[in-house]
């Protein structure tokens, strides 16, 4: 147990060090969603006023929680790409022939991604007043919990997908095919209500929908009226926790299988 904690801890520490020493990553994971938010928010403000947003807030406000999730997604993608590069470089082979437990490997990477996601997320959270969302302590605490679950789930999912992929190009393809649609169909970009029937269903079975809902409800803790037709707080958190656990277990299983006789 102690050894697993050491293994997990050292993987986490490496993620932190790498992140701090690669400024472009810090900027990339944060700036890109910020630019998305400002441009799309400003551009769609006039034509798109989703139900459930505060009066006068419009798309800039609706889109804000979605962009927070996007920050987490990008951070997860960046740390997963690092895993693909590790494999390519031979670094991962050295880890695989060590006595590391698969669960410790995935946990270390996932916690690393979660920590980085949360750091970026917190910076972004400070912009909430700009989106017209006033935050209290309870709302911040609940939002952080929701972000942690989503970041953990997305990093584990990324690892699960990336584990067998040999090249970063391959990962980009998969990312565009799986991870981005997962985000687009999560209610981050547009609400399920009013979407075509099949799309509505796709959004309902998308686990990330509940992560976005959990975050939205957390942000609007003081004003539950603004959250429209979203799934309730409890189920959203429960499903997000399930998403995180299932992704983690699946990633650990694929690592164990690839590294066991």
């Amino acid at each position: 147990m102690k050894e697993a904690a050491l293994q997990c801890g050292t993987l986490w520490l490496r993620e932190m060090k790498r992140f701090v020493r690669q400024r472009s990553r810090v900027v990339g994971a944060f700036m890109q969603p910020l630019v998305f938010w400002l441009l799309l928010g400003a551009g769609l403000k006039a034509s798109f006023r989703p139900e459930g947003t505060a009066p006068g807030g419009g798309f800039v406000e609706y889109f804000y929680p979605g962009v927070l999730i996007l920050v987490l997604l990008f951070t997860a993608i960046f740390s997963t790409i690092a895993t693909v590069e590790d494999r390519h470089a031979g670094f991962l082979q050295g880890v695989l022939v060590s006595p590391i437990r698969p669960a410790a490997l995935v946990m270390g990477q996932a916690l690393g991604g979660t920590t980085l996601g949360l750091m970026e997320g917190l910076i972004f959270l400070a912009l909430a007043p700009l989106a017209g969302i006033p935050l209290g302590i309870a709302a911040i605490a609940a939002s952080v919990a929701a972000m942690a679950l989503v970041a953990f789930a997305l990093t584990s999912l990324g690892l699960l997908i990336a584990w067998r992929i040999e090249s970063t190009q391959g990962f980009h393809t998969i990312m565009n095919l799986i991870l981005m649609p997962l985000w687009m169909l999560s209610g981050a970009f547009f609400p399920a209500k009013g979407a075509p029937f099949w799309l509505g269903w796709a959004m309902r079975v998308n686990p990330l929908t509940y992560g976005v809902a959990a975050l939205r409800r957390s942000l609007y803790r003081a004003h539950p009226a603004f959250t429209g037709h979203l799934p309730a707080m409890g189920p959203s958190f429960a499903i997000s926790l399930g998403f995180a656990l299932v992704s983690f277990a699946a990633a650990a299983a694929i690592v164990r299988r690839s590294n066991a006789f």
């Binding site: 490496r14 060090k17 790498r18 020493r21 690669q22 390519h88 470089a89 031979g90 670094f91 082979q93 050295g94 022939v97 060590s98 006595p99």
Partner: peptide
């Protein structure tokens, strides 16, 4: 695994 040390052909160090 505990008793072997392995140096792979591809670089196995983290440059950062």
């Amino acid at each position: 695994r505990r008793q072997i040390g392995v140096v792979f052909q591809n670089p196995g160090l983290d440059g950062k």
